[in-house]
Design a protein around this nucleic acid. Structure first.
Lengths: 300, 300
DNA sequence: GGCGATGATCATACAAACCGATCATTTCCA
DNA sequence: TGGAAATGATCGGTTTGTATGATCATCGCC
């Protein structure tokens, strides 16, 4: 007997007949004719190598055979899985399901909250998973979308979300002018993020200008950088959005740099076809970024 | 998007391509051509309402899409179930699997042991389940085979296994002759099984002959009946096989009755098509019964 | 003995599967 | 820069399978 030559439609027929008792009623329920069901069962019996129903003849209903019971048991498993698949597919198309997003602090704190709120208001049961994996060469593996401060690998799809101006955050007494010349940072005690990604680029650019700050503390936490500046430990060069809600006050001052460093460019990366949910997240993110830019939040 | 119009073969293609990476290798593995797999995936994509693979073009391999992942997850469930079904079907045809048998004490103790031994020697993993349900009108529901002391309902299939002579079991001092006239049992203290099935027929037949024994103890346990006779509590009329290995000794004597009561006829009943395992059990039971009969074990 | 329900069977129209050949695209290498 | 190699898509044609409606055989029941 040959292996697994049966079709889902045959198994549905088996189930319907076993449930309804007769070929005719099962055919009605499935929207077929009795003739079709007879042939489907015949095909199934060819596939499994023996009869699945006893047909006593006359008005007596069909009775399932031991072989039929064996097949039926598995058939119901498969039909249930098919149903579940259909539901998941429908949910997928409706914009539900799951989306895995790579992000980083600024995006998580500034951009994503309204995006997530909008998604969850449309699809309360959608499964949004955020992963913060700030490494030098991040990967898209296992992610549907990834926010990144650069255009990423050339074979990826991308959209540029915003340009985030680099500003100087300094203890209040340190600088007066609203614009500070970059070379005044040479030798100055400085707080920094770990030297990867944007922070690395900033330091490289300063070095190209002959400026070598003296890093006295590094932390991966944007807010902690600002707090240390606030404590007077040193100053910091940060993308404006990374400063959070910090603005010039009685402890810190924010300054533009002269010459201005190239801004941090935030991209959203993905690869190939997106799920409707992920596409919606992308579109909402683009809109949110446009709002941020036009509201002036990315420029001092 | 339409519901569950996909076929197992499409899901197998999906799985193979997701595993192998390219349509061509997957086609080779499945024994199809690349063209066929392209068309199968196209059909699947029509069924699920969207692409399941991104085809980057050129020598780059196909990559599964989010929708493809959703489908693939369920596909693997269904394919695993199909595999399991195939294995169960193969086991079924080879004579393995499960069989549910209704039996009763005599059959369990005398007939079945060698039958079960033979079955389990052929198929060590076969699942033989015995149910002792000694009621007046037993049912075949949930059973593949049923041993019964009568021909059963007319719409059942049956085979007559053996005729088991009714004998008198008496305390040693009670009767001398090897044949005892039935009417000598009138008023005699007697041990009996519950008055159903064969026991009921025996009592009816005695009553028809004007014989009314005095039942002083009833138990459903054949061996307990003999034990009570051995204790001198009374005598008993039993089918010979129900006496187990009891024979005339220094405590009990076995006697033929005059006139002989009709023997207990043991049938094996079933309905419709049997599984190979059940058919084998039936055939072995017929052979075992023939052995019992020809060895004289059913006649004193 | 006829009625009604059951499932099987047949002929036919239609759809789908599969294959072989071919094509378009892209990468890689010389 | 041009061509070889590998990818998947597409097309035409044959085969296979599917669904239908009509008809037939069987059997229980009134």
């Amino acid at each position: 007997m040959i292996i697994a030559m049966f079709e889902l439609r045959h198994l549905a027929a088996l189930d319907a007949i076993a449930t309804e008792g007769t070929f005719g009623r099962a055919a009605t329920r499935l929207g077929y004719t009795q003739s079709t069901l007879s042939q489907q069962i015949a095909a199934l019996e060819r596939a499994v190598g023996g009869p699945v129903f006893d047909r006593p003849g006359g008005p007596r209903p069909a009775r399932i055979t031991p072989l039929g019971r064996v097949v039926l048991e598995h058939a119901r498993t498969m039909l249930a899985a098919a149903d579940a698949a259909g539901e998941d597919i429908a949910r997928f198309h409706a914009g539900g399901g799951r989306v895995d997003v790579g992000t980083f602090q600024t995006v998580t704190n500034v951009l994503l909250p309204p995006v997530v709120a909008a998604l969850r208001s449309d699809h309360p049961d959608c499964d949004i998973r955020l992963v913060e994996d700030e490494t030098e060469t991040p990967t898209l593996a296992g992610l549907d979308l990834m926010f990144f401060d650069g255009p990423g690998a050339p074979d990826l799809d991308r959209v540029r979300l915003l340009a985030d101006e680099h500003v100087l955050v300094a203890p209040r007494a340190m600088f007066r002018a609203s614009r500070v010349a970059v070379d005044r940072l040479d030798g100055v005690p400085m707080i920094g993020l770990p030297p990867i990604c944007d922070q690395r680029r900033v330091e490289d650019q300063l070095a190209d200008l002959g400026v070598r700050p003296r890093f006295v503390f590094r932390t991966a936490d944007n807010q902690a950088v600002v707090s240390m500046v606030r404590g007077g430990l040193g100053c910091a060069v940060l993308p404006l959005l990374a400063t959070g809600s910090a603005r010039s006050d009685d402890q810190v001052t924010l300054h533009r740099l002269r010459p201005a460093l190239p801004p941090r460019e935030v991209y959203l990366l993905w690869q190939g076809t997106l799920s409707p949910l992920a596409a919606r997240l992308r579109d909402l993110s683009v809109a949110a970024a446009r709002d941020l830019t036009s509201s002036g939040a990315c420029r001092l």
